[in-house]
Amino acid sequence: MKTILVTGGTDGIGKGIAMHFLKKGDRVIVVGSSSAKGGVFYQEARQLGAEDRAIYIQANLSLVKENQRVIEEIKDRFHYLDIVVFCAAKHNKEYTETKEGFETTFALAYLSRFLLSYGLKDSLEKSASPVILNVCAPGMKGEVNWKDIQNRNNFEPQKVMFHGSRLNDLSGVSFAENDTAGKIKYILYNPWAVQTSSMLETFKNPLMKLIYKIIGKPVEKAIVPVIELLDNPPAASLSAFRERKAVSLAMETFNKENARKLYNMTLELRKKNRL
Protein backbone atom coordinates (compact mmCIF):
# COMPACT_ATOMS: atom_id res chain seq x y z
CA MET A 1 0.00 0.00 0.00
CA LYS A 2 1.36 3.38 -1.05
CA THR A 3 0.76 6.71 0.68
CA ILE A 4 -0.22 9.46 -1.74
CA LEU A 5 -0.77 13.18 -1.11
CA VAL A 6 -2.90 15.16 -3.57
CA THR A 7 -3.38 18.91 -3.26
CA GLY A 8 -6.58 20.13 -4.85
CA GLY A 9 -7.84 16.56 -4.50
CA THR A 10 -11.52 17.40 -4.03
CA ASP A 11 -12.03 18.72 -7.60
CA GLY A 12 -11.17 17.95 -11.20
CA ILE A 13 -7.96 16.11 -12.04
CA GLY A 14 -6.86 16.03 -8.40
CA LYS A 15 -10.05 14.29 -7.33
CA GLY A 16 -9.83 11.86 -10.22
CA ILE A 17 -6.30 10.86 -9.19
CA ALA A 18 -7.24 10.61 -5.51
CA MET A 19 -10.22 8.36 -6.17
CA HIS A 20 -8.20 6.14 -8.52
CA PHE A 21 -5.64 5.35 -5.84
CA LEU A 22 -8.32 4.84 -3.19
CA LYS A 23 -9.99 2.28 -5.44
CA LYS A 24 -6.60 0.66 -6.00
CA GLY A 25 -6.16 0.12 -2.26
CA ASP A 26 -3.71 2.88 -1.39
CA ARG A 27 -3.79 5.44 1.42
CA VAL A 28 -4.74 8.85 0.04
CA ILE A 29 -4.29 12.21 1.77
CA VAL A 30 -6.23 15.02 0.15
CA VAL A 31 -5.63 18.70 0.91
CA GLY A 32 -8.36 21.21 0.06
CA SER A 33 -9.94 24.41 1.30
CA SER A 34 -13.61 23.36 1.41
CA SER A 35 -14.90 21.39 4.39
CA ALA A 36 -18.04 20.55 2.39
CA LYS A 37 -15.99 19.00 -0.41
CA GLY A 38 -13.90 17.23 2.20
CA GLY A 39 -17.11 15.72 3.51
CA VAL A 40 -18.02 14.51 0.02
CA PHE A 41 -14.55 12.93 -0.26
CA TYR A 42 -15.13 10.99 2.96
CA GLN A 43 -18.61 9.96 1.84
CA GLU A 44 -17.31 8.61 -1.47
CA ALA A 45 -14.47 6.84 0.35
CA ARG A 46 -17.01 5.11 2.63
CA GLN A 47 -18.98 3.96 -0.41
CA LEU A 48 -15.76 2.30 -1.63
CA GLY A 49 -15.12 0.75 1.77
CA ALA A 50 -11.95 2.86 1.93
CA GLU A 51 -12.74 5.18 4.83
CA ASP A 52 -9.75 3.88 6.83
CA ARG A 53 -7.42 4.86 3.96
CA ALA A 54 -8.90 8.30 3.21
CA ILE A 55 -7.57 11.40 4.95
CA TYR A 56 -8.75 14.95 4.33
CA ILE A 57 -6.75 17.95 5.56
CA GLN A 58 -8.49 21.30 5.30
CA ALA A 59 -6.08 24.11 4.49
CA ASN A 60 -5.82 27.33 2.53
CA LEU A 61 -2.65 26.61 0.59
CA SER A 62 -2.40 30.18 -0.68
CA LEU A 63 -1.04 30.99 2.80
CA VAL A 64 2.56 30.15 3.68
CA LYS A 65 1.65 29.43 7.30
CA GLU A 66 -1.00 26.93 6.19
CA ASN A 67 1.54 25.12 4.02
CA GLN A 68 3.87 24.95 7.00
CA ARG A 69 1.05 23.51 9.13
CA VAL A 70 0.27 20.86 6.52
CA ILE A 71 3.94 19.89 6.28
CA GLU A 72 4.18 19.44 10.06
CA GLU A 73 0.92 17.47 10.20
CA ILE A 74 2.07 15.11 7.44
CA LYS A 75 5.38 14.54 9.19
CA ASP A 76 3.69 13.88 12.53
CA ARG A 77 1.01 11.51 11.23
CA PHE A 78 2.74 9.58 8.47
CA HIS A 79 6.13 7.92 8.44
CA TYR A 80 6.65 8.39 4.70
CA LEU A 81 5.11 9.53 1.42
CA ASP A 82 5.41 7.67 -1.87
CA ILE A 83 3.78 10.19 -4.19
CA VAL A 84 2.92 13.89 -4.04
CA VAL A 85 0.65 15.34 -6.73
CA PHE A 86 0.16 19.10 -7.05
CA CYS A 87 -3.20 20.07 -8.53
CA ALA A 88 -4.41 22.91 -6.30
CA ALA A 89 -5.07 26.06 -8.33
CA LYS A 90 -7.53 28.92 -8.41
CA HIS A 91 -7.91 31.22 -11.39
CA ASN A 92 -8.95 34.66 -10.21
CA LYS A 93 -10.58 37.15 -12.56
CA GLU A 94 -8.80 40.12 -11.00
CA TYR A 95 -5.79 40.87 -8.86
CA THR A 96 -6.19 39.79 -5.23
CA GLU A 97 -3.72 39.46 -2.38
CA THR A 98 -3.52 37.03 0.51
CA LYS A 99 -3.32 38.43 4.03
CA GLU A 100 0.39 37.58 3.89
CA GLY A 101 0.86 39.99 0.98
CA PHE A 102 1.25 37.60 -1.96
CA GLU A 103 -0.81 37.64 -5.16
CA THR A 104 -3.27 34.79 -4.67
CA THR A 105 -2.65 32.86 -7.90
CA PHE A 106 1.12 33.11 -7.44
CA ALA A 107 0.79 31.95 -3.84
CA LEU A 108 -1.37 28.91 -4.59
CA ALA A 109 -0.22 27.75 -8.02
CA TYR A 110 3.52 28.35 -7.50
CA LEU A 111 4.64 29.24 -3.98
CA SER A 112 2.66 26.48 -2.25
CA ARG A 113 4.14 23.85 -4.56
CA PHE A 114 7.63 25.21 -3.93
CA LEU A 115 7.14 25.03 -0.16
CA LEU A 116 5.59 21.57 -0.13
CA SER A 117 8.25 20.13 -2.46
CA TYR A 118 11.08 21.04 -0.13
CA GLY A 119 9.10 20.67 3.10
CA LEU A 120 8.05 17.09 2.33
CA LYS A 121 11.38 16.02 0.80
CA ASP A 122 12.46 14.03 3.87
CA SER A 123 9.15 12.17 3.98
CA LEU A 124 9.43 11.29 0.29
CA GLU A 125 13.00 10.07 0.61
CA LYS A 126 11.84 7.39 3.06
CA SER A 127 9.96 5.78 0.17
CA ALA A 128 11.61 3.24 -2.15
CA SER A 129 10.47 5.08 -5.29
CA PRO A 130 9.30 8.63 -4.46
CA VAL A 131 7.61 10.81 -7.08
CA ILE A 132 6.45 14.42 -7.27
CA LEU A 133 4.05 15.17 -10.11
CA ASN A 134 3.31 18.84 -10.73
CA VAL A 135 0.23 19.42 -12.90
CA CYS A 136 0.93 22.64 -14.81
CA ALA A 137 1.66 23.27 -18.50
CA PRO A 138 5.21 22.34 -19.58
CA GLY A 139 5.83 22.41 -23.29
CA MET A 140 4.24 25.82 -23.79
CA LYS A 141 6.18 28.91 -24.81
CA GLY A 142 6.36 31.99 -22.64
CA GLU A 143 8.66 34.08 -20.51
CA VAL A 144 8.83 34.93 -16.84
CA ASN A 145 7.99 38.54 -16.07
CA TRP A 146 10.94 39.18 -13.78
CA LYS A 147 9.99 42.82 -13.21
CA ASP A 148 6.49 41.87 -12.04
CA ILE A 149 6.75 38.27 -10.85
CA GLN A 150 3.39 38.42 -9.05
CA ASN A 151 1.48 40.15 -11.85
CA ARG A 152 0.56 43.20 -9.79
CA ASN A 153 0.22 45.25 -12.99
CA ASN A 154 -1.97 44.46 -16.01
CA PHE A 155 -3.56 41.38 -14.42
CA GLU A 156 -5.07 39.09 -17.07
CA PRO A 157 -6.39 35.69 -15.84
CA GLN A 158 -5.19 33.55 -18.76
CA LYS A 159 -1.76 35.18 -18.92
CA VAL A 160 -1.37 34.81 -15.15
CA MET A 161 -2.28 31.12 -15.38
CA PHE A 162 0.36 30.43 -18.06
CA HIS A 163 2.89 32.58 -16.22
CA GLY A 164 2.41 30.34 -13.18
CA SER A 165 3.26 27.34 -15.33
CA ARG A 166 6.51 28.97 -16.44
CA LEU A 167 7.39 29.46 -12.77
CA ASN A 168 6.64 25.79 -12.08
CA ASP A 169 8.83 24.73 -15.02
CA LEU A 170 11.75 26.55 -13.43
CA SER A 171 10.86 25.30 -9.96
CA GLY A 172 11.09 21.71 -11.19
CA VAL A 173 14.52 22.44 -12.66
CA SER A 174 15.83 24.00 -9.46
CA PHE A 175 14.40 21.19 -7.32
CA ALA A 176 16.24 18.60 -9.41
CA GLU A 177 19.41 20.72 -9.28
CA ASN A 178 19.21 21.10 -5.49
CA ASP A 179 18.30 17.46 -4.85
CA THR A 180 21.78 16.03 -4.38
CA ALA A 181 20.38 12.68 -3.18
CA GLY A 182 18.66 12.29 -6.56
CA LYS A 183 16.12 9.80 -5.27
CA ILE A 184 12.93 11.75 -6.00
CA LYS A 185 11.59 11.72 -9.56
CA TYR A 186 10.07 15.12 -10.35
CA ILE A 187 7.56 15.15 -13.22
CA LEU A 188 6.11 18.29 -14.77
CA TYR A 189 2.83 17.34 -16.43
CA ASN A 190 0.59 19.14 -18.92
CA PRO A 191 -2.84 17.47 -19.19
CA TRP A 192 -3.75 19.76 -22.10
CA ALA A 193 -7.47 20.59 -22.30
CA VAL A 194 -9.61 19.07 -19.55
CA GLN A 195 -13.26 19.76 -18.78
CA THR A 196 -13.08 21.25 -15.30
CA SER A 197 -15.11 24.11 -13.87
CA SER A 198 -12.01 26.03 -12.78
CA MET A 199 -10.57 26.04 -16.30
CA LEU A 200 -13.83 27.15 -17.88
CA GLU A 201 -13.97 30.08 -15.46
CA THR A 202 -10.74 31.50 -16.90
CA PHE A 203 -12.29 32.18 -20.30
CA LYS A 204 -14.20 35.46 -20.63
CA ASN A 205 -15.13 34.89 -24.26
CA PRO A 206 -18.25 32.65 -24.62
CA LEU A 207 -16.86 31.26 -27.88
CA MET A 208 -13.66 30.18 -26.14
CA LYS A 209 -15.72 28.49 -23.42
CA LEU A 210 -17.64 26.57 -26.09
CA ILE A 211 -14.45 25.53 -27.91
CA TYR A 212 -12.91 24.35 -24.65
CA LYS A 213 -16.00 22.32 -23.85
CA ILE A 214 -15.72 20.65 -27.25
CA ILE A 215 -11.98 19.89 -27.22
CA GLY A 216 -11.66 19.31 -23.48
CA LYS A 217 -11.33 15.73 -22.22
CA PRO A 218 -13.40 14.43 -19.31
CA VAL A 219 -11.40 13.95 -16.12
CA GLU A 220 -11.57 10.14 -16.24
CA LYS A 221 -9.76 10.19 -19.61
CA ALA A 222 -7.36 12.99 -18.68
CA ILE A 223 -5.93 11.12 -15.68
CA VAL A 224 -5.02 7.92 -17.56
CA PRO A 225 -1.57 9.17 -18.73
CA VAL A 226 -0.98 10.60 -15.24
CA ILE A 227 -1.59 7.22 -13.62
CA GLU A 228 0.74 5.58 -16.14
CA LEU A 229 3.52 8.01 -15.20
CA LEU A 230 2.96 7.55 -11.48
CA ASP A 231 2.97 3.77 -11.79
CA ASN A 232 6.08 3.78 -14.01
CA PRO A 233 7.98 7.05 -13.51
CA PRO A 234 10.87 7.96 -15.82
CA ALA A 235 14.38 7.20 -14.62
CA ALA A 236 15.51 10.83 -14.91
CA SER A 237 15.38 13.05 -11.85
CA LEU A 238 13.39 15.61 -13.87
CA SER A 239 11.04 14.99 -16.79
CA ALA A 240 8.20 16.84 -18.49
CA PHE A 241 5.23 15.63 -20.48
CA ARG A 242 2.35 17.00 -22.49
CA GLU A 243 -0.11 14.15 -22.14
CA ARG A 244 1.93 11.08 -23.22
CA LYS A 245 4.49 13.05 -25.24
CA ALA A 246 7.80 13.89 -23.57
CA VAL A 247 8.69 17.58 -23.55
CA SER A 248 12.30 18.50 -24.29
CA LEU A 249 14.08 20.03 -21.31
CA ALA A 250 16.23 21.91 -23.81
CA MET A 251 13.40 24.44 -24.21
CA GLU A 252 14.25 27.92 -22.94
CA THR A 253 11.44 27.61 -20.38
CA PHE A 254 13.70 25.17 -18.48
CA ASN A 255 16.77 27.43 -18.46
CA LYS A 256 18.92 26.47 -15.47
CA GLU A 257 20.22 29.98 -14.87
CA ASN A 258 16.66 31.30 -14.73
CA ALA A 259 15.71 28.44 -12.42
CA ARG A 260 18.42 29.46 -9.96
CA LYS A 261 17.34 33.09 -10.26
CA LEU A 262 13.73 32.21 -9.42
CA TYR A 263 14.79 29.95 -6.54
CA ASN A 264 16.81 32.76 -4.94
CA MET A 265 14.06 35.30 -5.62
CA THR A 266 11.53 33.04 -3.91
CA LEU A 267 13.73 32.72 -0.83
CA GLU A 268 14.10 36.50 -0.75
CA LEU A 269 10.33 37.00 -1.00
CA ARG A 270 9.79 34.74 2.01
CA LYS A 271 12.50 36.54 3.94
CA LYS A 272 11.05 39.93 3.04
CA ASN A 273 7.59 38.86 4.21
CA ARG A 274 9.11 37.21 7.28
CA LEU A 275 7.53 33.86 6.48
Rank of each mutant, 00 (worst) to 15 (best):
N258V: 03
G172N: 08
V70W: 01
N168V: 14
Y110I: 04
S239D: 02
R69D: 13
S237E: 07
A109H: 12
T3M: 01
L238K: 09
K93G: 15
L200P: 06
P225F: 07
V226E: 07
D122H: 03
V194D: 11
S197N: 13
E100L: 04
V6P: 01
A36W: 03
I132W: 02
E100I: 04
K185L: 00
K24A: 09
F21H: 10
G49C: 05
G8T: 14
A18H: 01
F155L: 06
D82P: 05
S33C: 11
A246Y: 01
L210E: 01
I132Q: 00
E100K: 04
E252Q: 13
H91D: 05
V84T: 14
M1V: 06
E97S: 14
L22Y: 02
E177F: 11
V144D: 08
V40E: 15
G182R: 09
G39Y: 03
S248R: 03
V219W: 01
T253S: 15
L188I: 03
G12R: 07
T266S: 13
A137E: 08
L5C: 04
A246T: 08
V224K: 14
Q150M: 08
N151A: 15
A18E: 04
R260G: 03
R113K: 15
D76L: 03
V219C: 08
V144F: 11
A36C: 01
L262M: 09
V6H: 03
L22K: 01
I83K: 09
I17D: 04
E243Q: 11
L267D: 12
A109Y: 06
K245A: 12
A246G: 01
V30G: 13
S123C: 02
L167S: 14
N178Q: 15
Y118I: 02
I83Y: 10
L48R: 02
N255I: 10
